[in-house]
Amino acid sequence: MITFENIDVVYPNGFKGLSNVNLQIDKGEFVAIVGLSGAGKSTLIRTVNGLVPFTSGTLKVGDEVVDPRSKAKLRRLRSRVGMIFQSFNLVTRVSVLNNVLVGRSAETPTWRSLLGWYRAEDKELAFKSLERVGIVDKAYMRASSLSGGQQQRVAIARVLAQDPEVILADEPVASLDPPTAHKVMRDLRRIQQELGITTIVNMHHLDLARSYADRIIGMRAGEVVFDGPVEEATDAVIEEVYQRSLTAEDIVAGDAAAESSAAGDAAARDSATEGAVTERSVPAAKAQD
């Protein structure tokens, strides 16, 4: 469970990234954060693992209170919180397996990392993670030789190798073409359901958010202006979040396979996470003020 209490983020240049954010994200939830660029989506996600330090308020991940000033504590926290990036952030010159093993850093002694001599069980975990995203056969290929979608799956495997409680994904499909975007989102959704990992995803494609998430959080100017289950996030509500009418840019459109599987996902979601969607600190009604 992740709890934000009155979280503010003020950047060193004085820009206010987040203001008075109160959220509670339950264990195993799949949350999509939507908003225009600059609305504070990335800042919100990055406060969770301390990549952006918050300036006031209290943030808890599980039972642990996040302390952005303690490097050791942050490292321990980050070992439990995996992160996926828009640009994959792989080391393209080394093998897929070595990229995945970066996820084992927190559990690996420094001398082993220096020599690149990983324990057999760490390697096995890396292979398992690759298996879960279906590219275990590419383990010894250079990361740069993979396609965009495959690279993002390597990044997901890197996160899985951490054996995380939480996955943060910052625009994970924004640089992928629509069919690949759907595939990667399906992978994320499947992993969240199979392993019960809390997943928070930033996205600007509304249709993806609606088809894969349980809950949508709308942000504007560093504030949470909508928070509710997918069913409540109607076009009118999102237009209120964006402060403009929806355009073709807001959807990724999809492929037939994605449509059908999204329907299946929706059904699975209804049965799997009913009841998780309970009371919200910021109800939808507020967004419509």
């Binding site: 490292r75 980050r78 992160m83 952030n89 970066v102 850093s105 420094t110």
Partner: peptide
């Protein structure tokens, strides 16, 4: 800076981050 941030986000310490995310990039 992407891989460096990713190593940070995975909980790597400074030495590990430099070895795993920076050294391969500057090796050539």
């Amino acid at each position: 800076p992407g891989p460096v941030e990713a190593a940070d986000a995975a909980g790597a310490n400074l030495t590990q981050r430099n070895r795993l995310a920076i050294l391969p990039q500057v090796l050539p």
